[in-house]
Amino acid sequence: MSDMAIRIGAGDSPEQAAVGPRPRSHRAGTALTAQALVAPAAMLMLIILLGPLAGVLALSFTDYQLGAPSFSWIGLANYREMFADKVFWISLRNTLTYVVIVVPGSVALGLGIALLIQSGSSLRSWYRTIYFLPVMATLIAMAIVWEFMLHPQFGLINGLLRSFGMQGHSWLQDRNTALYSLCAIGIWQAVGFNMVLFLAGLVSIPKPLYDAAEIDGASGAWSRFRLVTWPMLGPVTAFVVVISSIRSFQVFDTVQVLTKGGPSKSSEVLIYTMYTEGFEFFRSGYGAALTVVFLVFVLALTLLKARLNRGVHYA
């Protein structure tokens, strides 16, 4: 189809000579216009996305450091160093822990809230708005609020615990709880997003299916859920799980501002390691290698999503 424009010259008929030089077909003009219309996008895509993507791969095989006068190709040395580095493994394990906690937490809660909201008709949009609020609020600002809520002495959480006669805790300063505190913030922030996706999925379930289920004898709420809601929501759920995973893999803001990966690397995550190596120590080559590892995980998840995407009705 795309070679339409090129074949235009092929149709010259004998009469044409008599009419004079054939005017440039406006269709050919359209093809040129089309290329002019996409040119800025194509160029920017190359400079800002595809080029850097190739660049990050290439960099990961060099020892380039920002400001260094020269660099050399060092093959897999960055990767060898990375795999030998304990921090990398800690960082990877922490990232995976974060994903494994936040994803099920935010998906299950999101589903539960969506089902609860949808099960009645009153105050629907109120609840939806409230639960969605954390998605909208600037995460950095809210992280700072969370930090104060988790303040060992004057924070709300410890205050509440104390009023129930329990021991307070230094949540973000303790290596045993820092990562889990970040997970809690992560879940708090992601629930509303997942809820809205589930609500969209619930709305798209055809009502007659419930009538049919009722006639077929599924009278209780649970049997209706088992027979209709859950199977119909299956693709949406898979989709939400993958999206949440991708988003969780990118966790950075809360770590950078609240714990800086600490204490003693207990909340070090991949993107944060990449950030410190690449932008604080300016070891671009090594940072690139970390990025490549991150990319492998995210692209694997994205490809998974692309496969699931076909099953989701509203996407």
Binding site: A10, G11, S13, R22, P23, R24, R27
Partner: peptide
């Protein structure tokens, strides 16, 4: 649409390539 070959004339004038 542009024809692959042949000619369109309007009032005797060939209009191929005219917008």
């Amino acid at each position: 649409e542009t024809q692959t070959s042949g000619q369109v004339r309007i009032d005797g004038e060939a209009v191929d390539g005219v917008r």
